[in-house]
């Protein structure tokens, strides 16, 4: 019983916040009052959560990696075309995309290790390079897969990928030393170093891991849409920022629970915001503004939880002083 109570307390914040927002949406938008909408939201949160988990490793390690969107793109184009050419089916797409994404992330990590310049610079340079390369390889046509590959847009395909991604993220963060090293490096570099953790290799590993998840996300995208086309002029940064926002919201509602689950709920909340904007006919050109305001609000609430508690105490103390 104690374990159950402990478990509930750990996850109550993220579940409650998400549930309240869903309830509010359903309250004010009657067209959303159905189980299928709830299922849709839970499904729509799956793919962004995959990329969010990859981005989390970078954020934990203190890396600023704006190239993860470009890694998604190159993983999709290289992995998708390779799997299709070899006739490997959807499993081949997943494997090839993950390998391509891992390679792209590993290049990022290797460059960081060799050049020792800030990760933000490496990532922006590689973003430009990867976008350009995508415009050249395979005739610049990107990748198009046949309908037989489109099995990841719905249950059970999407659930399998979510579980695969979760398992991988959990393994890396909780069951392998690298996860702890990443956390230590990002939290206190000096103490981490003093305890024998190789800071440079750890940060490089985080970049590679993010690439792996970029490949996973690319595979899910291909397995849902069947297509990936080239993007230029740093257009892939949008993908990167969306993933970061899922992570920021997730971190603010995780509380004592598992941060991976928190990020999934963060992704669901992001999709809910998009749905709400559509339902309330909010002009699309302001949708990013609304999303950004939500993210800021979540971050403020999270950062100021102590302040809110103090406010409560101050009021109680003032009342006590009056009596």
């Amino acid at each position: 019983m104690q374990t159950v109570i402990k478990g509930v307390r750990k996850y109550i914040l993220m579940v409650a916040v998400t549930a309240i927002l869903v309830a509010l949406l359903m309250l004010f938008a009657p067209s959303t009052r159905s189980l299928s909408i709830l299922v849709t939201l839970l499904e729509q949160g799956m793919a962004p959560a995959l990329l969010g988990w990859g981005v989390l490793f970078n954020i934990k390690a203190g890396n600023w990696d704006f190239g993860v969107g470009a890694e998604v793109l190159i993983a999709a184009i290289v992995g998708g075309n390779a799997a299709d050419a070899l006739g490997l089916g959807i499993v081949g797409v997943v494997c090839c995309c993950m390998l391509a994404g891992l390679a792209a992330g590993a290049v990022s990590g290797l460059l960081y290790k060799l050049l020792r310049v800030p990760t933000i610079i490496i990532s922006i340079a590689l973003m430009l390079i990867y976008e350009s390369v995508c415009g050249v390889i395979f005739g610049g046509r990107g990748v198009t897969l046949g309908v037989e590959y489109l099995v990841l847009a719905s249950f059970p395909g999407n659930a399998v990928m979510l579980l695969l991604g979760f398992g991988l993220a959990w393994l890396l963060s909780s069951k392998l030393k690298i996860g702890y090293s990443i956390k230590a490096v990002g939290s206190n570099l000096k103490v981490a170093e003093d305890n024998g953790i190789d800071v440079v290799n750890t940060k490089a590993a985080a970049l590679a891991i993010a690439g792996l998840f970029a490949g996973l996300y690319a595979a899910v995208s291909l397995g849902s849409s069947g297509v990936a086309r080239t993007v230029s002029a740093m257009g892939t940064m949008g993908t990167c920022f969306n993933a970061m926002m899922c992570v920021f919201i997730g971190l603010s509602i995780t509380g004592r629970g598992n941060v991976l689950v928190g990020i999934y709920f963060g992704a669901v909340i992001m999709q809910m915001i998009q749905m709400a904007l559509m339902v309330f006919s909010f002009p699309t050109q302001y949708s990013q503004v609304v999303v950004a305001l939500f993210v800021v609000a979540f971050m403020l609430a999270s950062a100021n939880t102590e302040g809110l508690r103090r406010l409560k105490r101050r009021r109680a103390a003032a009342n006590g002083a009056k009596q």
Partner: peptide, 11 residues
Amino acid sequence: TGTIAGMSVYE
């Protein structure tokens, strides 16, 4: 300080 804030006691 030789402990890391943001990591649990067991970590």
